[in-house]
Design a protein around this nucleic acid. Structure first.
Lengths: 206, 206
DNA sequence: CCCTATAGGCGTACGGCATACGCTTACGAT
DNA sequence: ATCGTAAGCGTATGCCGTACGCCTATAGGG
């Protein structure tokens, strides 16, 4: 009977994402999103209760693009986990600004659960049960979350690493930093993941 | 010749930390800190250029309390790494509010470098060189950063885990969640770290 | 075809934030 | 006693999220 809505939640999320991609997370405000859409600021509040809900909309929209379909069962389990993890990293890595948002709203996102399900299944298939599986799953999550942030905040090949390399009072650390250029971002991520997977597999990648 | 300063940077950091511990990170503002000290808001700007510098002061003050002294050389290398990592976790864990600040300002903190140095040394002693050591060090850092955040944002024993346990459409994940109560926070953290260390050690903890 | 209930959309206003700018004032060296 | 310097403060600006109340477009019933 009344006036119909003129906006879908997707359009809202898309507009907010456009603002973030253009002006960074600091540029995200109710005013900016309203202007992006061409609506008044307060008009947005017909669609979301508050700013947090808009943020949730954005991260849902992004995380929904992570493919949750279990990879080919013929591959060894550690390869399958690597595939799943790389999918998440790929999606999040293409919107680095909103990593903090994802961290903050992670527990309210259904997409991340749908993504975790095949991970849990693969771990079960690898022979992990009960507490072992809990720990393996959480460790993977911790590694992914931490690695993406490290990558985004201070890339291995960045200026910060060079500063470390020049610090004579930290011999081992600076020597390590000097080798950082040999390691690409992808190698770093996959290398660390491989270490974790080797640990999960008991060392023999069974 | 001119009027002397009435505040040390430590006092400033202590006041800001008091505000955070009392009112949370959201309660941290130049006004709040000024009030805590008993000074006007703008008076603070004689000591810091902007809010970011005050945040840096706070996290330096906290991270400076992390013991960087290398542990007893007689212990096996993986135990020594565990000791170092637990020291960082202990300090950060007692100020959970400022985890986001630490993440954001990590690369400007000297304390974290002083803490990383023995870590790099121990890894070298474990036989890791060049790219291998780079990856191992970054992985440890990524794990620690991620695990502390996961722990703080959604404890394994918390309500979020229960919600997952009840989701019938995610059988493996919910079955995993049902075992979460068996795992304490410490076990989770050490368990994941042990997996990573096992991977670093090549599976045989040599 | 008009009427009207309903919800969409908007304007204004409030309190809080960081901080630029300029003034006043306490102080130590002369 | 005087004066240059830097400490500390008051005010103002332009952001922010959002509570509240108004106006109006619209679709269903008459």
């Amino acid at each position: 009977m009344p006036r119909p809505r003129s906006l879908t939640p997707e359009q809202l999320a898309t507009a907010a994402l456009a603002v973030i991609d253009r002006d960074g997370l600091a540029g995200l405000s109710m005013r900016a999103v309203a202007q992006e859409i061409g609506m008044s600021t307060m008009g947005l509040y017909r669609y979301v209760d508050d700013r947090g809900e808009l943020e949730q909309l954005v991260i849902d929209r992004v995380l929904d693009t992570v493919d949750p379909v279990p990879p080919d069962q013929d591959r060894p389990w550690h390869e399958r986990i690597e595939i799943m993890v790389e999918r998440l990293r790929g999606v999040v890595g293409s919107h680095p600004w909103l990593v903090p948002l994802i961290i903050a709203h992670r527990h309210r996102s259904v997409a991340i659960l749908r993504w975790s399900e095949p991970l849990a299944a693969i771990l079960a298939e690898a022979g992990l049960d009960g507490g072992e599986r809990v720990i393996a799953l959480r460790s993977l999550l911790a590694y992914v979350v931490g690695a993406i942030q490290l990558e985004q905040l201070g890339p291995l090949a960045g200026a910060g690493t060079q500063v470390i390399a020049d610090r004579a009072e930290l011999p081992y650390l600076s020597e390590t930093a000097r080798h950082a250029h040999d390691v690409t971002t992808d190698e770093e991520f996959r290398g660390g993941l491989a270490l974790l997977l080797r640990g999960i597999g008991g060392g023999d990648m069974r």
